[in-house]
Design a protein around this nucleic acid. Structure first.
Lengths: 245, 245
DNA sequence: AAGTGGTCTAGACCACGGC
DNA sequence: CCGTGGTCTAGACCACTTG
């Protein structure tokens, strides 16, 4: 660990930032896994040769960023993609009437290995011979087929996922458990579109119906793009919620 | 200021939190106005009888929350609704081709004083005889009429705004300058809808076109709801961008 | 009672901006 | 050069959880 009294430094990086990155790397490489407890502030301070206050600042920053989770009197833990975290951070569709937010059931329609088009290759930064997994499923909310999802995953990171007969509702938890991939950040792009033939049959709606299309690119802890997802929602009784701060 | 060694306290509130709230109140009541500089950390510490570190924690929290703005070597300032902050925090429509994000021109169509319906009365928590200002305007992006906006403001907070012939593009800056109302947080609810007759004529589109509808409720620093806004966007060449962290 | 994170303090020094 | 915020340290005590 570089001392704080380093050179006048055009490349100055605060100590707590270095600690932060070091801990992040340890999590990425799997030294500390989701759900596991980290050493205490004093132990980490001794381990890294910095003061407890500096470790604290790093841990708090990582907590702010949802990488860690702290409980007073207990310890500091690596965040897990639990269902409630998922609902809170990565699932923004809500019922118009503020009903009990049921966990949305997802029915798998098809899973296959495909040859990506130019756009997908760019998104995932793939070589020309790499394959992509396509998952086609439909979510029901309040017992109504409401959202059609097309999910694309680079085969490279997800091994034989496309051979599974069943997949859980919460894919992000599944990615984390089975492939050591933690979805950390995502970008959603929303548009209004008209339902195509497939939308009409899957969502059981008439021609000319407007749908809310959400295109998501999701990135892992290390910044790699690991998922591309197209959701098309019948927003008659739904909306997509955004909180601006 | 309550001392840190207070009673075992079921109503325990950290010192820095108290400092934070005190500073927020000062800003709300107008002692420190947008753009103005605050006393330095040490001056505030002396003023409030706490340590500099505690003041720092409060100021950093408020900076995180976009209430304040700090510049090393210069000082701490109350945030202003500048155009760039607006674009960054409260305007999420982007061109599909990542062109230079032009500042969207807004053309005023009509401004009038109306009697609110039940829903608007609830949103603003109005008494039965209070009026609401309605602003109808259209935003052009890349020289194309793209977004139709209906903006509702409680007359109580915005005096004679509805008598203005012209309004600036950035309403939030205008609210702040003329009515001491700082839009701090907002909730957007998005749906896909079909264009109605008015949409068709204002946005110059055909019947049956899908539109991205964004319904926003905006709240001031003190938590009051101060604006209700319906935006209907032709999302053919546009999208609404959301970053999830 | 012991151990954890949370708060508060005091002091030193660094980086930055303006005079 | 001075004053500002930014970093780092060391130590005390509080609040919470577990055994």
């Amino acid at each position: 660990m570089t001392t704080s009294t380093s050179q006048p430094s055009p490349t100055f990086k605060p100590l707590y930032k270095q600690v932060q990155e070091l801990i992040t790397e340890r999590i990425i490489e799997g030294s500390w896994k989701p759900g596991e407890i980290l050493p205490s502030e004093f132990q980490l301070a001794d381990l890294l040769g910095v003061s407890q206050g500096t470790v604290r600042k790093a841990l708090n920053a990582l907590t702010e960023d949802n990488v860690l989770f702290r409980r007073q009197g207990v310890g500091t833990f690596v965040s897990e993609h639990t269902l409630q975290k998922m609902m809170f951070h990565f699932f923004h569709f809500k019922s118009d009437n503020g009903d009990i937010p049921e966990l949305p059931y997802a029915q798998l329609l098809e899973t296959q290995l495909i040859t990506p088009d130019e756009h997908l290759r760019t998104v995932f930064d793939l070589t020309s011979d790499e394959k992509v997994i396509e998952i086609h499923r439909v979510r029901s909310i309040n017992n109504t087929a409401s959202i059609r999802e097309l999910i694309y995953l680079p085969h490279r990171y997800f091994a034989d996922l496309h051979k599974e007969e069943k997949l859980p509702h919460s894919l992000y938890h599944y990615y984390q458990q089975h492939f050591n991939i933690t979805v950390h950040k995502a970008t959603d792009r929303l548009k209004a579109v008209l339902a195509d033939d497939q939308d009409q049959s899957v969502l059981n709606i008439a021609a000319g119906q407007p749908l809310l299309e959400v295109i998501r690119t999701a990135r892992a802890l290390d910044g790699r793009t690991v998922e591309y997802r197209i959701s098309r929602a019948n927003s008659e009784d739904l909306h997509y919620l955004v909180e601006l701060n």
